[in-house]
């Protein structure tokens, strides 16, 4: 097992994954189309549901392929540290246990959970239609800008390729490559926090899409059931959001130590989002009083805007969570 097996697995993932993501795009666009038709003409709900099930199924199938690829990375790539380094670090070798929500896979993961959750609101056909449109937008973005199959895990790949290149070149490059990889593997990829903190947040985000949809309908139609649905999905989301965010704190202390992470834009954005959702849940206690329902529904929409804003911060503002360089 080695680099060539890893490369073969990577190529195979692209080979089997590309058709899946293409079908996801097709069916989710159909889902969005039927969603719009249902909202306008109250027709074709059966087609919409069928497309929703197929899209969700395809997302899950693609996710299974991604799991397979991650297992292959674990099986094929072994970082054996140079003897000199073994005296300084508590490991002779490392393997990548790559989480399934990094790089281009995170938007895919979020879209998959959202797609599955949308199926649980079938008693409200309008919400299913609306989330169908959201999922089609999601899938469009995934396909064209965050496709996990076209160039699987580019950063991980460059690190693995860099390691094997250093091995081929000899001693000088190995120490530096091994030192960097040890930190990345220990405190990032293989960290328990990495396996808990991001998925909790992404699952929370998926729940909050339903809350967002219900708040929009509540604002424009003022039917009590929308408020109840919004609240029903906001509750687990809030628990996951709160705990997920808090779990990031000890991880940051462990991994970033003295780095500039406190008041990092992503953290500020997350506190903003949390404060808004706390505010929403507080205001909702009196949703039935006077015009409070308007305020809570509007707050629910503002909250979701802050969620999207927080997610995008990684790509638009520099910071320790960010991919943007200063």
């Amino acid at each position: 097992m080695g680099f060539s097996e890893y490369l073969a697995a990577r190529d195979f993932l692209t080979f089997i994954g590309q058709p899946v993501i293409t079908y996801i795009l097709i069916f989710s666009l159909l889902q969005g189309f039927f969603g719009i038709l249902y909202l306008l003409k109250k027709k074709y709900y059966g087609y919409l549901i069928k497309c929703s099930y197929i899209t969700s199924g395809l997302y899950v199938l693609g996710f299974i392929f991604l799991i397979w690829f991650h297992v292959q990375i674990y099986n094929t790539v072994v970082i054996e540290y140079p003897v000199f380094m073994r005296e300084m670090i508590p490991a002779d070798e490392s393997r990548f246990i790559i989480p399934l929500w990094i790089e281009s896979e995170k938007l895919y993961f979020w879209a998959m959970i959202a797609s599955i959750l949308a199926l649980t609101v079938q008693r409200r056909e309008d919400i299913v239609s609306f989330t169908g449109i959201v999922i089609s937008i999601f899938s469009f973005i995934v396909y064209f800008s965050s496709n996990p199959f076209i160039d699987p895990l580019p950063i991980v790949h460059s690190e693995i390729a860099g390691w094997y290149s250093a091995l081929a070149q000899g001693d000088a490059g190995i120490y530096q490559a091994a030192g960097i990889l040890y930190g990345r593997i220990t405190y990032y990829y293989n960290s328990t926090y990495m396996w808990v903190h991001p998925p909790m947040l992404f699952i929370a985000y998926a729940f909050l899409i339903i809350t967002f949809a219900a708040c929009i309908f509540m604002l424009f139609r003022h039917v009590q059931v929308y408020d109840e649905i919004a609240y029903m999905y906001a509750k687990p989301a809030y628990i996951l959001l709160t705990v997920g965010m808090l779990i990031g704190y000890p991880w940051a202390i462990e991994a970033w130590k003295d780095s500039a992470w406190w008041w990092d834009p992503k953290i500020s954005g997350s506190i903003l989002m949390w404060a808004l959702y706390t505010s929403y849940l507080h205001a909702r206690i009196y949703a039935n009083r006077g015009k409070m329902w308007k305020i809570t529904a509007s707050l629910g929409i503002i909250c979701f805007s802050s969620l999207v804003f927080t997610y995008l911060l990684t790509y638009i503002v520099p910071g320790i969570h960010s991919v943007v360089q200063t």
């Binding site: 008041w263 990092d264 834009p265 500020s268 954005g269 506190i271 903003l272 404060a275 808004l276 706390t278 505010s279 507080h282 205001a283 802050s306 911060l313 503002v317 520099p318 910071g319």
Partner: peptide
């Protein structure tokens, strides 16, 4: 309480802009 939380949110927005 909701207004105070919103104000904390505004501080966070300021923080993002200032950091940038």
């Amino acid at each position: 309480t909701s207004l105070i939380l919103l104000a904390i949110g505004l501080v966070c927005i300021y923080g993002i802009i200032y950091y940038n």
